[in-house]
Write a protein that binds this DNA or RNA. Structure first.
Lengths: 160, 160
DNA sequence: TAATATAGGACTTGCTTGGTCGGACTTGAG
DNA sequence: CTCAAGTCCGACCAAGCAAGTCCTATATTA
């Protein structure tokens, strides 16, 4: 599995949309919802959470809406996902919180935590700017290392 | 989130345990379950699934149990997780199956698929052998690229 | 044959997720 | 000042899924 939640999907779609919009106009939740066929009330709640996480700023009142809170080249997919779904965690336990029956007997924590940090890394290396223009011309400087492009031949095993 | 299921946890714990056991003796489900405080019936079903996926072989009857089906250096965490939770998928849709309302409007698929393949990659580069000996002596040859060790700083290169 | 394994389907339960509703607050226009 | 459009935000509901239990069948050994 490892599927991310629909709310996270919606958040990414909206953030990408806003990354494409001009930086000083605000777009309403309803407008975005209609563009992509997303339940408006739900998207609203998602956007509110993004505001609370300081990824968006909201403009209240008539003709209000949302705007990115920062440079789309610096906001990453990881930021969005963590704002919605909470911190990425592969295991039930973390260095602080041993929320697991077999914590003391467990021998697989450490390697899994390493894997987790590689996953966070994968999420953090894709910026919203990249989402907004999915086919960057070769040589376009996008504040991100290049190994993210080049769809990883997914080594030995059957990926599916 | 991105949390993996408890069944997958149990599977990894069991597989690691078996990777540590001698290769020609079989270990029963109950034995493993008791070692780690895992519900026996549940673990049994997990192990059965691993047999069906050809990661384990089972020995029936009294003093039966389970054995790894292959070299622990070649079996990876990705294999185990995919056997239990099904193919890793970050999005609801895949190149074949557009299982999503906003498939045609959606612009974030491709980058997310790239991220997915990076995640699979992270899972596939950790072998059961590595799980079994979490602190490999420097220089130990374990059929796996070395950038997986060296925890977090996430080396900005290589991958391929 | 008795004891101990795996194999596997059916079922319960509790939490999470997706989605809805209704009210409070903000702004802009008359 | 007041009203309407629109946003913010918490509470609520329902369906689905994951975790765990139970029960039966089958295989193997002593």
């Amino acid at each position: 599995m490892l599927r991310l939640s629909k709310k996270a999907d919606y958040a990414l779609i909206a953030m990408r949309h806003l990354a494409g919009a001009s930086a000083d106009s605000s777009v309403s939740a309803r407008e975005i919802a209609e563009s992509y066929g997303i339940p408006a009330e739900l998207l609203a709640k998602v956007l509110q959470r993004l505001v609370r996480s300081r990824l968006l700023v909201s403009v209240q009142g008539t003709r209000g809406g949302y705007r990115l809170a920062g440079d789309p080249r610096l906001l990453t997919v990881a930021d969005v996902i963590q704002a919605i779904d909470g911190p990425v965690a592969v295991t039930a336990c973390s260095p602080d919180d041993h929320g697991c029956e077999q914590y003391d007997r467990c021998e697989i924590r450490d390697p899994l935590w390493k894997i987790k940090s590689r996953i966070v890394d994968a999420l953090a290396t894709v910026s919203l700017a990249e989402l907004a223009e999915p086919a960057p011309a070769p040589g376009t400087p996008v504040a991100v290392p290049m190994y993210v492009r080049g769809t990883a031949p997914a080594p030995p095993q059957a990926v599916e």
